[in-house]
Design a protein around this nucleic acid. Structure first.
Lengths: 163, 163
DNA sequence: GTATTCTTGACTATTTTGCTGGGGAATGTA
DNA sequence: TACATTCCCCAGCAAAATAGTCAAGAATAC
């Protein structure tokens, strides 16, 4: 044993697999559902190369929020409950990641900070927050699909092979 | 015991205490150093209400990167090695938080993803990345100080009472 | 010489992440 | 009605990251 600890970059300010998988999940359903057919988790799992058990867990929160409809039993599965342009990426991410504010102070409610007005740095965090929201609240599932169609080669619809 | 588990929002997409403390630390030094005097960690810890042992750890990486100069012994302490406008918030955060890209694929180098070109979602993560960098790479320590001076009441120079 | 202050490195508790697995309930088809 | 299928719910767990703490040592000013 020569090396005991190897420093790898921290994982802060990262979107977790839950959030990323949720976006891919919704995108997959959007692209594979038909008038008459539901999309099975098992198939999504295979296409996206994600554990189906983990996907089940993630889709549960999407179901709970009414983002998808489900049907049990044979020929069952999931489908979107609205049109693709009605889902912003932000709405999907917030369901699975929680509030995306870079510091808790900004979250408001129980976790907000009462002294936020007097903090310089909070002004900074607030700017970061606005910048992030400016993107995720203005990109919809429809946009993602459009981007994919514009791609001249095979699009993986996988953000990465990595975790 | 009635409640066993309480679900609190996840901590993803959050700037860690290390990063937030580092910004406050630099700001504190900037505001308290003089021509002849260094700023002691102990004093910063007291002013900022952060454990001095923890601050020592954080300032070590700032020292290592040449962001601050130090002097040991009595009357020793730390001071900035450059002008306040030469430190962007991004440079400070990246030192303590690592790369701030929201997904590893974007980091390039060892952690980058070779297939990034073919991913729709990566285009999205990339937009978020640009938005974040657009803020943190354009705000300097000098700006923070200016903001604080503009504040009509006592500014805490603490982003929060919270962790 | 002595008090002070930085410097280094190891250690630890807690939380979060990223899963896995078991069993049950509903549904369509034969 | 039997049965395979599919969603649904809950429990648990290993690895990693976070947010520190602790102890001992080296340099410096007075």
């Amino acid at each position: 044993m020569f090396i005991k600890y190897v420093y790898l970059a921290g994982e802060r300010m990262k979107i977790s697999t839950r959030g990323r998988y949720a976006v891919r999940l919704m995108l997959d359903i959007a692209q594979n559902e038909t008038e008459s057919e539901f999309v099975r988790v098992k198939d999504i799992a295979k296409r996206q190369d994600i554990s189906d058990k983990y996907l089940e867990q993630i889709i549960a929160s999407l179901k709970k929020a009414g983002f998808v409809k489900s049907l049990r039993g044979a020929q069952g599965g999931y489908r979107l409950s609205r049109k693709t342009k009605e889902y912003t990426v932000g709405s999907i991410l917030r369901l699975t990641e929680g509030d995306l504010a870079p510091v808790s102070c900004l979250e408001g409610g129980e976790f907000g900070c009462s002294r936020a007005d007097g903090c310089v740095t909070v002004r900074l965090w607030s700017m970061i927050n606005d910048a992030i929201n400016g993107v995720i609240d203005n990109v919809t599932l429809e946009d993602l699909i459009k981007w994919q169609e514009e791609m001249p080669y095979i699009a993986y619809n996988k953000d990465c092979t990595q975790k």
